[in-house]
Design a binder for these strands. Sequence first.
DNA 1: CCAATGTCGA
Length: 705
Amino acid sequence: MISAYARIGHFHAAIDCFNEFLSTSILQSDHYTFPPVIRACGNLDDGRKIHCLVLKLGFECDVYIAASFIHFYSRFGFVSLACNLFDNMMIRDIGTWNAMISGFCLNDKVAEALEVFDEMRLKSVTMDSVTISSLLPICAQLDDIIWGVLIHVYAIKLGLEFDLFVCNALINMYAKFGELRSAETIFNQMKVRDIVSWNSLLAAFEQNKKPVIALGVYNKMHSIGVVPDLLTLVSLASVIAELGNFLSSRSIHGFVTRRCWFLHDIALGNAIIDMYAKLGFIDSARKVFEGLPVKDVISWNSLITGYSQNGLANEAIDVYCSMRDYSNAVPNQGTWVSILTALSQLGALKQGMKTHGQLIKNFLYFDIFVSTCLIDMYGKCGRLADALSLFYEVPHKSSVSWNAIISCHGLHGYGLKAVKLFKEMQSEGVKPDHITFVSLLSACSHSGLVDEGQWCFQLMEETYAIRPSLKHYGCMVDLFGRAGHLEKAYNFVKNMPVQPDVSVWGALLGACRIHENVELVRTVSDHLLKVESKNVGYYVLLSNIYAKFGQWEGADVVRSKARERGLKKTPGWSSIEVDKKIDVFYTGNQTHPKCEEIYSELRNLTAKMKSIGYVPDYNFVLQDVEDDEKENILTSHSERLAMAFGIISTPPKTTLQIFKNLRVCGDCHNATKFISKITEREIIVRDSNRFHHFKDGACSCGDYW
DNA sequence: CCAATGTCGA
């Protein structure tokens, strides 16, 4: 009875039952009575009392009870107590050894656990399936596949290779190392499988970004009648999010709701929030979030990142503020990473600096991911010097930090410095990864460093054996194209060993626009439209180019194609920080409290600009309307609203910094030059591509943006 | 007695 209560998780009932047993039973308690009770103990004191009782009753040499206590003390972090118990035992059985291994594992003492394993080997203690399945998860933690394989071999030698628990642990171990074929082989060879086996295989494919195969696993288990459980749905939700399957997301939500599983498990709710957020249904994500009976830090983080990744950085910050003010969830590494990412998107320097202060207080300052985000935040908010000094202050042994500082220099147009940093990274012995080269190549292309870029590309394959991905090819095409070597860029695309994707064609298209090569546009556009893409940006770029060359039918084709594929234009926004507060403007926005003043300032500016030679470029207006309406549309672009707001809200000649989610419009780029001249201000615009410095009627990146 | 699967962030 005690054991039954403990097994189903009714620990209090188990303890009550035990007390009743002690007070009423004439039977002597034995070594079957105690272990379930010890397992049921929810706090240290209860366990201690039982331990005293056990000693009084003379059970101190009982191996079953000792194993329970070793496990018990380890559960509460008193692994040294557990050790003492273990060391003082005259006779140990396999359960005792296993309990000690699991005790070390519970406390993340991987090396000690493996020492116990070694001792067992040396003393010829025969291991069982429990030993093996406790040890396997450690190998993944150690990041050492040699240990994993070694233990696998041991399992075979012991005749445990078809044991259910061992196999499940093996599937998980191989999956963590990305060895999916091995994981699948184990699964296929199993004589008996349970729900854990299926879930493990499903998660293996999901976590290694193979959602299609993962879905296949699910369909298979469904077709042979295996009933999915809560954990199946957690993985399935991630699979559906990755596949971008809108309909299935609703079915999953319904399935979970009908079974009331939200009440039983936070992780499942979190997975559904994340699924909706990744599919862009941020409102549904919010509803699920609000409906959760209990929320943990991951629930909050999921919603924050959801908003942030859907371009709603301001909303992400709002969620974070509610978390801080109305919940007792403690922000963790993930929270800070999400917040800093959102702040960098918005260019919210002041709030970012405040966050920096909080991180110092929370000792998270030296966390590699958090500090990388801080570097990125300073860089993206225009404080490159601060980013660099912070970089040298925090640990930078990992490529992640170097990638951040290199990419920031690229964004600011300092290609040579980026290359210099890369060389420094090499000399410090930090191994670059594929992202390092993306940052580096794009830094070179923004600064027109063709030779340096080619050098990097070659180095990547020859020295570091990194096979170029489509992103790298895209960067190279951009490098050649932007520098005016269109022929070379096109040949490069034709000779690629892999099928070019939208980003590669898009890069070539961008080059065609800059260098006004109409003939090539046709070819590129044919290819571009053939490749499926969810990125509307390329369609907009293409129709802009057709419009620019006066080829209206071409523009129409592109627009109808975009409509046919159900793509909606991403709303453009720009933000500006005034008095420590961020204001976000959407194109055409008329709801800002200072709306009247902003538009009147813009009319005023436009008149002055025209008098010194500004001519609006209507090619950037895709709607087919009259010219004066086109002018209105250009004037209400988000970057101009933000700029006008900055002008009326700050003292004369103050530098303005504008942050934009999309690429800055060509006409706005031109207009900003005039505005910088008229207002005698330095204006810095960071768009999705790079920083633009406007001063005295000119821009740091010349005529082409 | 002792053992296995899942959610966010980079």
